[in-house]
């Protein structure tokens, strides 16, 4: 496992409220990492720090050895960091096809329609008229057009039926290659525990638990999760 995305001693927050207290997390290339925790544990804040939409108070963020702490968000995206935020993660006023064109820089959208047949034939439909599940499919599906070297996904399974979650994760399985880092943020989702190489549990802005899935048996779930 080589140097991928590293978050080192990061403090960050909103105004007077600090959301991350000196958090250090490593996401090596070639790994699937599950980032778990309750609401308000700091998971989304961590993603925003990585994406560059939340300023870091102290500490640094590095990507493949390069310090990107002060890099604006769009340049991070250009460097291969793809963050899919919490809902709404597609442009509701743009059509499905326009959403795909914007992200894919004109790449043909067929792979997305192949992976998610629900979206096929809805290219001209405004994304705002899609159901919650279809939006998640669009948000995840467009990654297939131009997959970055780091994919960070915030609660993509929220509000989905068990079958839909399984299919989303199968798409992720295909994307998990040795030169890519995948970070999946969830509150609690048994599906990811089977797939992850590494699990971090955040609690109240701090790292509460780190380890491999085998160490995380239901009997010994970290207190921060339940």
């Amino acid at each position: 496992m080589t140097a991928g995305l590293d978050v080192v001693h990061v403090r960050a927050g909103y105004g007077a409220v600090e959301a991350l207290h000196d958090v250090t997390l490593r996401f090596p290339l070639g790994s699937v990492v599950a980032l778990l925790g309750r609401n308000g544990a700091g998971k989304s804040s961590l993603l925003r720090v990585v994406a560059g939409t939340l300023d870091v108070g102290s500490g640094r963020v590095t990507w493949r050895g390069r310090d990107i702490t002060r890099l604006p968000p769009h340049q991070r995206a250009a460097a291969g960091l793809t963050v899919v935020p919490d809902d709404p993660n597609v442009f509701l006023d743009l059509s499905v096809a326009e959403n795909l064109a914007l992200f894919g820089h004109g790449a043909p959208p067929e792979p997305v329609y192949a992976a998610f047949p629900e979206l096929a034939g809805k290219g001209g439909q405004r994304a705002g008229t899609l159901s919650g599940g279809e939006r998640q499919m669009l948000a995840l599906g467009r990654l297939l057009l131009r997959p970055g070297a780091a994919l960070l996904l915030d609660e993509v399974s929220r509000g989905l039926s068990a079958g839909a979650v399984e299919r989303l994760y199968r798409v992720l399985d295909d994307l998990a290659t040795p030169d890519r880092t995948i970070v999946v943020v969830e509150q609690y989702q048994p599906n990811i525990l089977r797939r992850a190489d590494l699990i971090y549990v955040l609690s109240r802005g701090e790292l509460a638990w780190a380890g491999e899935p085998s160490e995380l048996t239901t009997g010994a779930l970290p207190a921060a999760l339940v």
Partner: peptide, 16 residues
């Protein structure tokens, strides 16, 4: 249109 609708999301997609 993307930036107007949701600026942060547009940035995450690499738009300045």
């Amino acid at each position: 249109r993307a930036v107007v609708e949701r600026r942060e999301l547009a940035q995450l997609q690499g738009l300045d």
